[in-house]
């Protein structure tokens, strides 16, 4: 390292320090002004105070799954198991049965998703030929204490201990 390099190095070090110092000064000024009731154009921090304040979930965001229903309240799902087939994390499990309507033929009696495996890729939504499954509930807080509580039945609906 030559003396010239050293000098340049020192200057850059100082410049770096000045950048953070400027951030500190500007943000501190904004915080202080707001604390005494003067509105500034921008706030001192970009933080969103999460549980109290929430960000708008974008419309195409993939959140917890739901099964859509027909007008009569039964699921649109015909248990074709294409979601099961396409699922890369093997987290869906469906049990099918005869539907009373011979036109519909097949209906799920149990539709279970293992959230501990689900990677929220949305392939199931894309694979569905009936537009029966969507990931647009906007529910993001589905954490549970146990793995087994993360196996949620989205049809026939929340069972005991599986509330969502």
């Amino acid at each position: 390292m030559t003396v010239k390099d050293g000098a340049r190095f020192a200057i850059e070090v100082l410049r770096g320090g000045l950048i953070t110092a400027r951030h500190f000064a500007v943000n501190m000024a904004r915080h202080s002004l707001r604390a005494i009731g003067i509105r500034t154009r921008r706030t001192g921090a970009v933080t969103i105070q999460y549980p109290e304040a929430r960000k708008q979930v974008p419309s195409r965001h993939r959140s917890l799954h739901r099964l859509l229903t027909r007008p009569d309240g039964r699921p649109r799902c015909v248990a074709c198991m294409l979601c099961l087939t396409v699922c890369p994390s093997e987290c869906i499990s469906v049990e099918a049965d005869e539907d009373p309507d011979p036109e519909i033929q097949k209906t799920p009696i149990r539709f279970e998703i293992d959230l501990s495996r689900c990677c929220f890729c949305g392939f199931c939504v894309e694979a569905c030929p009936e537009d029966a499954i969507r990931m647009d509930t906007g529910i993001l807080e589905w954490g549970r204490l146990g793995r087994d509580d993360l196996r949620i039945e989205i049809w026939p609906g929340p069972g005991p201990g599986r509330k969502i």
Partner: peptide, 9 residues
């Protein structure tokens, strides 16, 4: 066998 699974599984 009907509806118990799919052939490709």
């Amino acid at each position: 066998f009907r509806f118990s699974t799919r052939a490709w599984f």
